[in-house]
Every structure is written in C-alpha cells, then in structure tokens.
Nucleic acid binder design. Structure first.
Lengths: 243, 243
DNA sequence: CGGTATCTTGACGGTGCTCAACCCTAGTGG
DNA sequence: CCACTAGGGTTGAGCACCGTCAAGATACCG
C-alpha cells in the first residue's frame, strides 16, 4: 500500500505519517498515465489546473528564450510533484519533457486545498519540501552566476548524486545520468561542446569515471571542497511543525 | 491599523482578508528593530528560529563561494518575509545585508505553525506567494544561464520596476535603485566594471536615463521584447483557494 | 580638507562560444 | 545482412564576450 505511492514514500522519509495523512497523499496517485522518452508533456498534456506526481522515469522542465535559446530549470525524479511552481498561475510558465520513459499521476489543483484544510502537518511538510527545492535552486543560481564551467559540471554531478541517494537509486556511488549533453548544457548555461570537453577533462584528471552514460565519482571529497557543496536534503528542522 | 503592517498590506493586494486573518498576520510585526545601511543582519542577527518582515528599506541576501566570490540571491523590499528559504534548516544558509537604513520585525518560526493550523486560507496565500517568488527566481536563472550581459541588465531593471510597482513605490516609471554596481554584478554574474559599461551603453542607446542613482526606462516595450519579460505579479490564480 | 567608497574608462588576456568535421551507436527499411 | 539515416558525442581552430588589472574621476563623510 505505502509502496504503491512514491510520494508517500518520499514524505515518509522526512516525517512519520498518520494513516489519515497517508490516505490523503496516496489519493493523489490514483490515476496514472505513461509517456515515451523525449516527448513534451506540456503545454499539450493537461490544462493548467493539474499537477502530477512522478511515479517513474526522468523528466526535465525548461523555458525557451528569444533566438532559440533554452534554459533547463530542473530535473525531476520519482516522488517529485510536477507543476507546483505553476500553481499560482492560470497559464503554464514552464515546459516539461521526458528524458526517459515515464509514468505520471495527474491530479487537480483543488486536491492541494484538501490537504491545506485537512492536515496542517502535511501542509507544513509540503511547504518545507518546496523550500528545500528552492534552496537547491539557489545553489544552482550560484553555480550559474559565479562558477566556471568545470565547477558547474562538478556541482551538477554532486547534486544529482545527492538527489539519487535520497531516492535510493544509488549503488556504490555509481549512477546513470540519462540526459544528453545538450540538456546538461542548457541546465548549466554552457554548450554541449563545452560540456563534452569538461567531462573529458574531469575524466583525464581522475576525478570521475564514465561508462556508457553511467558515472562514478572517484574523488567525491575533492569535488565537494572544489565547489563548497552542501547536501540540502540531510538534516531538516521539522521541530517547529504542528502535530 | 492595516496601515501599520506592510505584510497585511501586501497580502491584501492578492486576497481580501478576514479580521481574524488580519490579526494573525499583523501579530508578526509587533516587534521591530532598526538597522543602519550596509550592515550584516545575519548570521549575527538572530538565531535560525527567527524570520522577519521587512517594514522599511532595501536588503539583499547572498551566498559566499570559494575564493571570495559572492552570489547575490535576492533583493528584499518592504512587505517581504525574510528568512523563509531557511525555514527547513537548523542553520542559516543565506546571509543578509542592508542596502539602506532598514526597519525589520523579527518573529519566531513557530508563528508559522499558528498560521498553518488556524488559517488554511492564509496558508494557501503564503504558499502561493512563495511560489511566485520561486517563479521569479526561475526567470533569474534564465537570465544567468542564457542571456548576455546587456540583456541581464535590461532584465534586472524590468524586474525591479515590476516589483516596485507592486509595492507602489513608482512615480511615472522613475525609480531609485540603491544598490552598488558591485552588488548588481554579484546578482547577475558580472563584474562591477562590466555593469558600469552596460549601463553606459544602454544610456547611449537611448533605452534608459540615469540621474544620480535613479533610473527611467525610456523604451520599456523594446526592453521587454528584448528579454521576453513577463510580470509574474500580475494575474494570479487564487480561484482554487480554500475559504 | 583628507580619506574612503563608488563609478568610469582603457588595454589586454582568457574562458567558453561558433562553426565544422568526424566518429559511434541505434534504429529503420530494403 | 547491409545500406541509410539521425541523434549524440568528440575534437580542432578561430574569435568574441567579458574578466582582470590599473589609473583616474567623482561623490560622500568625518
């Protein structure tokens, strides 16, 4: 039962959930829908009054800029809630595309209102998670604003690893990264060409190993000090939460 | 009464507030404290269990990176809640400094819990405002990742203007920008030198006028199309809110 | 009036972009 | 089984945007 809901599993990792809360959250994942890799699920997918839970697969969200430029805003993993950022708006401001085959669970905005009224505790938790994601966003802002290409790549690898560790998709520090170098470049404000160069350089320097789209961080400590990396998903302060 | 609370005033602009809600929010601003311009109010100010409402003045938040680099994360205006992003953590991850003389109203994290339990409607509103700010953050991410220096400056001017219009601090499109060019550079991922150059260039091209730290956007429409600017503070969707 | 912070302007150099060619793999259809 | 195609990755050469360094100008403040 709890197994069936990625979101329950993720939230449960931060806080113990009552049965009522579990039911409230699991309700969000009752519908599901599959998508092939490399398909746009928005703006064509659903109307702006829907969000969805990622049940399986990788996705990324992005914005398009003048002259064909693109900025990738975020990468989404199982257990993430997709479309939260557009909750305040009538129109989507963000486009989303699948990187791998995906399974998604759409639910209406109004389901959020049920959570707000019925469970202050879940509200505080969702609020908190949104803020953690905002903190990660701020880290990424630092990377784009004040780091060199090499450091940005290092930062990305560390962030993805921390995120996958949270989701439990990590075996012995090795992980798959099913994103093209163009997508990575659009995420870090670089070109695919330079992403390729930096990966090669990091490999030559013995910091990472690559094997067919899978990465191994050989010197994680050195990498962490290089970019002053902090794992934001560890050690939240949930002490002030309502019961 | 309503006048005395910047936050009530700001929230009231999005939604009509009940008396109970007004009281709940106004409560946050009962203490106040003054700061001179150019002083760090954190980490030295208060412990991590406090947030505060900005009652008067400009501030900016930032992170420090290796080798003396700095990334300015946000600029704060009257009515903003400061420290929200650090709500999930025991330690501050963000430093804050005043740009002008300021008046701030500290309140404990636990006050948030009172709002969550007593007013689903205020909860939804605070949640929504946090998400709007996140959307603006995403716009800034686009600017840092995929815009040239000139466009970043244009974007910044438009964002500040939109923000000040919301706060009602705008007379005939003219506004003060009490930030040094070094701070602006640290916000946009540029050097103070290049910020200066870009300002001069925009002025030479007839897009803006400068007068003693005050700005006038002479060709706002041209500037908006240049960076595909969207005012996120207009037209929120509050229809799904609980009563 | 001296001192400090900020802004401006110039010269020079490097990081990362552009353009281009090439390789590799996977998928498709004959 | 193989030719063909398309998408992704790699590598090289040239160049431009923006950083660095430095000097000078201006404003503000004690």
């Amino acid at each position: 039962m709890a197994q069936s809901s990625c979101l329950v599993e993720k939230l449960g990792r931060f806080l113990s959930l009552s049965e009522a809360d579990t039911a409230l959250i699991a309700e969000l994942e009752k519908d599901e829908q599959s998508f092939k890799a490399h398909t746009k699920i928005r703006p064509l997918g659903w109307k702006a009054e829907h969000l969805c839970v990622v049940k399986e697969g990788w996705l990324y969200s992005y914005r398009l800029l003048p002259e064909g430029r693109r900025q990738v805003l975020d990468v989404h993993y199982p257990g993430d809630v997709l479309g939260m950022a557009d909750l305040p708006f009538r129109e989507y401001s963000i486009a989303v595309e699948t990187a791998t085959d995906c399974c998604l669970c759409p639910f209406p905005k109004s389901a959020m209102d049920r959570i707000f009224t019925q469970s202050p505790r879940m509200t505080a938790l969702l609020f908190t998670i949104a803020l953690v994601e905002q903190t990660v966003l701020l880290d990424r802002l630092c990377a784009l604003g004040r780091m060199e290409a090499r450091e940005r790549i290092v930062y990305l690898l560390l962030e993805v690893q921390a995120r996958l560790r949270l989701a439990g998709c990590l075996d012995r520090n090795r992980f798959e990264l099913p994103l093209t170098q163009t997508v990575i470049g659009d995420m870090l404000g670089l070109t695919n060409v330079y992403v390729s160069r930096m990966f090669s350089e990091l490999e030559d320097d013995g910091l990472i190993d690559r094997d067919n789209g899978a990465f191994l961080l050989k010197e994680p400590d050195q990498m962490k000090t290089m970019v002053d990396f902090k794992d934001r998903y560890a050690a939240l302060d949930t002490g002030w939460f309502p019961i």
